[in-house]
Design a protein around this nucleic acid. Sequence first.
DNA 1: GCTGCGGCAAGTGCATGCACTTTATGCCCT
DNA 2: AGGGCATAAAGTGCATGCACTTGCCGCAGC
Lengths: 238, 238
Amino acid sequence: MSGKRSLIRSGTTVDQMVRAIGDRIVTGFLRPGEKLDEGSLAARFEVSRTPVREALGQLSAIGLVERRPNRSAIVAVVTQEHLASMFESMAELEAICARFSAERMTGGERRSLEIEHRTSARLVQLGAEEDYEYFNTEFHTRLYRGAHNTHIYDLTVMTRSRLAPFRRAQFMLPGRLAKSWQEHDVIVTAIMRADAAAAGKAARDHVSIVSEASSVFAAGTARPGADLPGSGTFMHDH
Amino acid sequence: MSGKRSLIRSGTTVDQMVRAIGDRIVTGFLRPGEKLDEGSLAARFEVSRTPVREALGQLSAIGLVERRPNRSAIVAVVTQEHLASMFESMAELEAICARFSAERMTGGERRSLEIEHRTSARLVQLGAEEDYEYFNTEFHTRLYRGAHNTHIYDLTVMTRSRLAPFRRAQFMLPGRLAKSWQEHDVIVTAIMRADAAAAGKAARDHVSIVSEASSVFAAGTARPGADLPGSGTFMHDH
DNA sequence: GCTGCGGCAAGTGCATGCACTTTATGCCCT
DNA sequence: AGGGCATAAAGTGCATGCACTTGCCGCAGC
């Protein structure tokens, strides 16, 4: 193939492949069960099969794709049961983060959490789903960071990314936006009071509700949303 | 060291490499910071560099090794802070498992948990550290399974394997064996009563104590235990 | 028409080769 | 003797090649 190195920023080719494919999975552009042919992907991204192979291996190590010997890799297909277990785990993880955040956030962290939260109130009034989604992600990330525990952070972000495809449409449901904000409000209030137990419970309830909202459209074998632009920042950095 | 090909069962060459190298890391045979030279490993296991490379990539994806472009991979070095965060996470994860177990274990699961637990009392009297260690692992695994949540199970097992090198010597401390058993006893009792809150608290406390016991010998930059035979079953199956 | 089977195309698994980057070595100069 | 600087050695990153496995398609047999 031609000698020139393609494209823009950052890292080794393998890393780029991991991000590229991982993003397409978590954004739902690649759908569960879809075959990931090494040759096609290699051609698609204009690299050889080797980095694609390594990327698929890494994605399989973190559970985003499934691989069986001598068979094409496929996007991980999550059963209804496994999906439920991930949502439940997410609720517990968020509860932990909220509890720790209530206990450990610095003054600055508390302040900016509250400010961001209040700012996002506007978006609810405007019904700006797209923008609210962004603030929502930001909000939760603040909770994860506020726990001041890097390992919990990693577990939580990882679990969130695996759930991402199944949450995409959650704000479509009418009134969900305002409800989400109010649930956030309970969490924020508890954190400002440094009431760990209340914060934990509020966070757990919040996720549980999201979970129910999502599972509505995740039928039989879970199938996530549509084809959004692949902008997701699928892996953490911290 | 030296020695032939691991040769034991199953899977592609890459899988074997992942297990071989992963085991050596979690058992502390390979020590944090140690260089993992692709060529040497390939020679050591009598394969080409390609599967070794893929294995290192996967191990880096799950955090057991660190990799920087154009530099040798090294066994992940955990800072004291990160180690603490993992122990804390472990405590929380075990608490969740214990809570869920108290609520969800089947009659059979409860029975065998209790029986195993009682059986292990003998080992305490005998001071059989090796054997108790085995039962201890078994005991905790039962808790993880009893939660009936595959994702939590995965997170917990994964976290445990990352902590494994740092727990190895915990039962060396005098009296630790009996104390461990009694802590287990509190957990079991709570589970038998289906008292979720009590079970969670007991499990959390149990891990916290182990954590303190371990951090004793994990000085400055954390350095794990010695060179035990590589018998660890580092990755789950479920 | 359906099932079983042989052969071919497609695709994976691993080894090897080579360019490029980093690290180690030696030499000169001060 | 000690600090650069060129050069060699070692090691990574990716592409390519080839053996082997799996899946597909058509055809014979029932």
